[in-house]
Design a protein around this nucleic acid. Structure first.
Ligand SMILES: NC(=O)c1ccc[n+]([C@@H]2O[C@H](COP(=O)([O-])OP(=O)(O)OC[C@H]3O[C@@H](n4cnc5c(N)ncnc54)[C@H](O)[C@@H]3O)[C@@H](O)[C@H]2O)c1
Ligand SMILES: NC(=O)c1ccc[n+]([C@@H]2O[C@H](COP(=O)([O-])OP(=O)(O)OC[C@H]3O[C@@H](n4cnc5c(N)ncnc54)[C@H](O)[C@@H]3O)[C@@H](O)[C@H]2O)c1
Lengths: 196, 196
DNA sequence: AAGACTTTGTGAAGGATGTCACAAGGTACC
DNA sequence: GGTACCTTGTGACATCCTTCACAAAGTCTT
């Protein structure tokens, strides 16, 4: 809305876009102070500014990707585009064949350089795109190197320390949610069942 | 647990693994009938079987990936490994340079073949890995081709029809949640802010 | 300036969800 | 068989979250 130049928005309009009740929108926004103007609505630029600050997105976060396989490269190219507050500044991998590979504005470097990269580049966050078996070890490595948080894409249970919060993304969950939301009637064929 | 050969589990043990209260586990599982045995706990094989059925994961789902860029190829290789009930059977792209490219057990085919592929291969689900600007169009195409549900990775608001539920995954949210969970004290540098 | 109209902020009510605590049912050992 | 010990299933309670409904505060028109 802001990028389209709209100036004001009502809780009613927001509720339609976000699929929530208008009362919910107002209750939530009121938590941040009196942001709206009665009879008028909310100032979009003001909302964006306030929310950006509350969500701590008013500062830059520098990231390093660990594991430059299929997913690591895709993420680097994606986040590398500088989505808002986030920039990927480096990617590391233990596989020498990947060293020097160009992705999203930087080249892949050896895993051993991690600590140095974090220090020199002022890295804040780590992204794990390594095999599940290497997830815990990689997390520990990132923490030792000094990152302040880690986003994990490996389907593994990783033990985290409070100094470096961990957030895990398991894409399989989305597939499961999708099939659960499917209309009941005719279910698909069962030719490809496999019990892992 | 099942793959490790463990036979039984108590609500207490589950609560520790899942970070929920034991009472919560019991209340939830009791919804599916009396699955447990008092004084003993739950039979793991039985639980897996019951949950698999309830979540409709007891049947195979065949998928097609639309958009064979960085993410599409990564996802194909990932899901192509046949995670439980899911198999990627095809990938399509409008870019002729990508035709014939080999990923995760199949080759990339032209976008125009989509309808035919869905019909011939008995595809149930579609995966959107296209630019945001092409998301709606691609969703419509998938629905017209006959898929029963769509998983979308493009950061776009797509209008869905009830016959083909849509589930969207926005990875940026995870980054935002991660920085919000960071310890308050010293926030990182602000040298790389950009307002998109 | 007054009246008609909007839209926010918010107590109060209602609904949903989570926790407690214990009887019911089961095992294990003598 | 009897006793000690577990662990589930579940009402009763507590807590949290959402919706309702309206006063307060603003705009717009005349
Ligand atoms: N590909 C996807 O779409 C996708 C989606 C969700 C999750 N995942 C998960 O993400 C992870 C990576 O997936 P991928 O498809 O990119 O696999 P991949 O095999 O293509 O890449 C893994 C990379 O990690 C590197 N690596 C191996 N051991 C390492 C270690 N100890 N430290 C650092 N790097 C190491 C490898 O050299 C390789 O480059 C896996 O755990 C996978 O389950 C992948
Ligand atoms: N790369 C990531 O890690 C990542 C993560 C999350 C979300 N996404 C989103 O996923 C989408 C794809 O990302 P990407 O990095 O793979 O981009 P990409 O540019 O590498 O790939 C996009 C692909 O879509 C194809 N395409 C273009 N128009 C199309 C159309 N009308 N129909 C079908 N295919 C079409 C292109 O030929 C290209 O192969 C984007 O919307 C991106 O924002 C990417």
């Amino acid at each position: 809305m802001a990028s389209q130049g709209t100036e004001r928005v009502s809780s009613q309009q927001l509720s339609e876009r976000l699929d929530l009740s208008a009362a919910q929108i107002r209750k939530d926004l009121a938590q941040l102070g009196e942001l709206g103007i009665r009879g008028v609505g909310y100032d979009i630029a003001g909302l964006v500014e306030r929310l950006t600050k509350v969500l701590r997105l008013d500062q830059g976060y520098r990231m390093v990707v660990v594991g430059m396989g299929n997913l690591g490269r895709a993420l680097s190219a994606y986040f590398g585009f500088n989505h808002g507050a986030f920039v990927v500044v480096a990617g590391v991998d233990p596989d020498p064949e990947k060293f020097g590979l160009d992705v999203g504005g930087f080249t892949v470097r050896p895993l051993e350089d991690l600590a140095q990269i974090v220090r020199d580049e002022g890295v804040d966050l780590g992204v794990l795109a390594v095999p599940a078996s290497a997830a815990q070890e990689s997390y520990d490595r990132l923490v030792a190197a000094g990152v302040r948080g880690v986003l994990n894409f490996a389907p593994a249970q990783v033990q985290a320390v409070p100094q470096a919060p961990l957030k895990s993304v398991d894409l399989r969950i989305y597939l499961e949610e999708l099939v659960f939301s499917l209309p009941e009637d005719a279910e698909p064929d069962s030719s490809s069942i496999s019990t892992e």
